[in-house]
Design a protein around this nucleic acid. Structure first.
Length: 752
DNA sequence: AAATAGCGCTTTTTT
DNA sequence: AGCGCTATTT
């Protein structure tokens, strides 16, 4: 172990070997923050601390896994994998699965992602008879999220004059009511949203002293990465857990605090100092990542912030190249110039694609870079944006899995009860919703005890509901004793999703099918990997083989696409991502693009000094990702929501010491002004098929062969309803099973 | 019931 | 420009 310590500088060593009592490491960009944390855990293990008594909280799961790997190398001890290491959310979700029953949650509770939460809020807003344009789901969710991060329950919220006044002033007086209903609904569905994981962890530790005691005892050492981005709720969990041993080490950099918008509280740094007056403070100021030019540029920039903990970041490295500035005429030219710059550097210096990164403020900016990179045949990978797990087809299949594992999960139920179409429409759903809310039961329970006539549901529809229930139950019966991949494939093939997708042979349809296959592959990988399980008594983590599908779901709900892509064959790609997701990463060549007023800084963050300073810290994070060479780009004109608008260069460009910048400015502008003409809309066909006979409608009966102008030939399987509402279920040779309203469908009888 | 056309709306960052 | 929702069509 002493050999290992030699790989650290004096300050880093001091921080690593200080293992007793509270301590804080303020670490500048590129100063080896993660290194200190990794070595500290390794050092603790080498000093005889049992791995499962160490809790290390990181910002991403990827960081956690990399750290674990490194630690195992350092200590030559497989037990190191028993360190409780992961994001706040994944670690405390794990704890809630063990002890959440005390709060009334089953251990298989579902975690809602932002889309689930918004869609639930939307349906609540509608139920309460409010306007979804005033009460936009994202605004409401933001309010609820802020409340939860500050441990304000729905009841507290309603009684808080400041919050309610704010809501009244902003024309949304019912926000508190929505919050309360939202919580009830989540609870009945056995679901938690992201903020609930931290909120309920706090409640658990607050109201159940023996649980608190158990974890306080167990975790002798707490370590926290990216402490500057923790919120109040996270702060309080740490404070509670650390109260017994007070061996808590937090690592962070106030200059890189960029998550204020989601409740991160820089005050936590000062609270730490207050809570532990005898804490030791370490400062890491030597940067090992970047050239002198880049470090100086970053230092001069951040000086413009008023609120900061003073430190002087310095480096031993060479002066390096000056920072290039690209001034483009338009956003598409910005893309071209950046792609060409990458191409030239790559060729002249024989660099791999992976040494380049393009960083932008908003996901929407990625397009022009994708286009130009593609034209030059430069492989790239985009992170963020529409992530894999947010795609419709993936969410659909996952919803089946979710419903099987937790039938009370209402968002999952609503999503798939009529997908693929099985004749349970919006009207029926509304009746079920009303019935469920009257009986104060989950929708699933309501369906199980369905008294159809009482809810005004037709017998035919009730039959379809019961078919659906039987299907889901048959999956549920297999859950416990079937491996994840076997059940997943069984569901994918028998629920009709794959059948539905196979019909669609458009490029999008084919890509959707590929995505489903990719999801199944991911589950296969997961099934092949032994799973960690917590031993309830000792807290030790043991592994079990052949995990079930619910284990997969629990894992997947907290993943981001940043976490899960390492072993892709082709790793040598240019990276495109937002500055936020670039936190903690580094690249030899970095392009920070879109440096314009109202874009970076964002027009939404220029109202207060605090917001503007956060934007500046964000830019600070962006430029400190660069190791060797930094290029900044901006466009004089940019397409914004459909039309071209003029831009001013970002004020941040003027805040960098001009000595760090290249004096020359490139201006080349072969403008691509030819835009494709849209084809004229086609004349619609209103006429009936020439040989259509209206009287056929009366004569149609089960087992007849019929023809539809779009779906082709098919056989009538069932008929229901009377008069104008008469419907036929037809099995088409090509298009599959469809329900059609005879009044419209114009079916032609081919064979009786 | 299912598909489509057209309209208005939104646009920050993410565990 | 792209999306989701509503109104309209089949």
């Amino acid at each position: 172990m002493n050999d290992i310590l030699k790989e650290l500088n004096t300050e880093q060593q001091a921080a690593v070997v200080h293992t007793n009592g509270p301590n804080m490491v303020i670490a500048g960009a590129g100063s080896g923050k993660t290194r200190v944390l990794t070595y500290k855990v390794a050092y603790l293990i080498s000093q005889g601390v049992e791995p499962f008594r160490i809790m290390a909280l990181t910002f991403t799961n990827k960081a956690a896994n990399e750290m674990k790997e490194r630690i195992m190398q350092l200590v030559h001890n497989q037990d190191a994998r028993n360190v409780w290491m992961g994001t706040f959310h994944s670690i405390f979700a794990r704890i809630l699965r063990v002890d959440g029953h005390l709060l009334g949650f089953p251990s298989n509770f579902t975690i809602y992602d932002t889309d689930d939460s918004k869609s639930l809020i939307k349906s609540i807003v509608k139920e309460l008879g409010l306007d979804t344009k005033t009460y936009t789901p994202s605004a409401i969710l933001h309010r609820i999220s802020m409340a939860k991060s500050n441990l304000i329950s729905a009841r507290d919220y309603a009684e808080d004059p400041e919050l309610t006044t704010y809501d009244r002033v902003s024309q949304r007086p019912q926000t508190g009511q929505i919050y309360a209903t939202y919580q009830q609904r989540l609870f009945k569905s056995a679901c938690m949203d992201f903020d609930d994981i931290l909120f309920f962890t706090n409640i658990l530790l607050r109201d159940f002293p023996d649980v608190l005691f158990k974890y306080q005892q167990r975790f002798s050492h707490l370590l926290v990465d990216e402490y500057q981005d923790t919120n109040y709720s996270q702060y309080l969990i740490l404070k509670r857990l650390a109260a017994r041993h007070e061996n808590i080490c937090v690592v962070g950099d106030d200059a890189q605090s960029i998550y204020g918008f989601r409740g991160a509280n820089i005050q936590n740094i000062f609270n730490f100092k207050k809570d532990y007056p005898d804490h030791i403070l370490f400062k890491l100021e030597q940067n090992y990542r970047s050239t002198k030019t880049i470090v100086e540029a970053a230092n001069t920039l951040i000086m413009h912030n008023k609120e900061q903990i003073f430190k002087k970041i310095w480096t031993d490295k060479e002066q390096g190249q000056r920072i290039s500035l690209i001034k483009a005429a338009t956003d598409s030219e910005e893309g071209i110039l950046v792609a060409h710059a990458i191409f030239e550097n790559k060729m002249n210096r024989q660099l791999p694609n992976s040494s380049f990164a393009i960083l932008y403020r908003t996901n929407a900016q990625s397009r022009s870079f994708e286009e130009s990179l593609r034209k030059l045949n430069i492989p790239y990978r985009i992170y963020g944006g529409l992530s894999f797990y947010k795609r419709k087809e993936i969410k659909d299949l996952l919803a089946y899995f979710r419903l099987v594992c937790n039938p009370h999960d209402q968002e999952a139920l609503v999503r798939i009860i009529n997908y693929p179409a099985r004749g349970i429409g919006e009207t029926t759903l509304e009746k079920l919703r009303v019935a469920a809310s009257e009986k104060d039961k989950s929708m699933w329970e309501t369906m199980l005890n369905l008294k159809a006539d009482a809810c005004g549901i037709a017998p035919g529809t009730a039959g379809k509901i019961s078919d659906f229930i039987i299907k889901i139950r048959s999956y549920q019966a297999q859950l416990a004793n079937t491996g994840a991949i076997d059940l997943a494939e069984h569901i994918a093939y028998t629920a009709g999703i794959i059948r539905e997708l196979k019909e669609d042979q458009t490029p999008e349809g084919i890509s959707r099918m590929e995505n489903i296959q990719e999801l199944l592959n991911a589950i296969r990988d997961f099934s092949d990997r032994p799973q960690e399980t917590i031993n309830e008594i000792t807290g030790e983590i043991t592994t079990t083989a052949n995990p079930t599908l619910d284990r997969f779901l629990q894992e997947v709900s907290l993943l981001t696409d940043l976490d899960s892509d390492d072993d892709k064959e082709n790793k040598d790609k240019v990276t495109l991502m937002t500055v936020h997701s670039a936190k903690g990463l580094e690249f030899p060549y970095v392009f920070v693009v879109g440096l314009e007023e109202n874009l970076f800084p964002s027009y939404l963050s220029m109202n207060t000094r605090a917001e503007l300073e956060e934007e500046r810290r964000l830019f600070y994070v962006a430029i400190t990702r660069a190791m060797d060479k930094l290029t900044l780009a901006w466009a004089m004109n940019r397409y914004r929501w459909g039309n071209l608008s003029f831009s001013q260069p970002s004020r941040f460009l003027d805040e960098i010491d001009p000595q760090c910048l290249e004096s020359t400015q490139k201006v080349t502008a072969p403008l691509n002004t030819v835009r494709k003409l849209k084809p004229l809309p086609q004349e619609k066909q209103h006429a009936d098929p020439p040989d259509f006979r209206p009287e056929d409608m009366q004569r149609i009966a089960v087992d007849m062969t019929v023809e539809h102008d779009r779906f082709g030939k098919g056989k009538v399987i069932a008929l229901e309803g009377q008069g104008a509402n008469r419907k036929a279920t037809v099995a088409f040779d090509q298009a599959g099973k469809k329900q059609l309203l005879l009044r419209f469908a114009k079916l032609k009888i081919l064979d009786e």
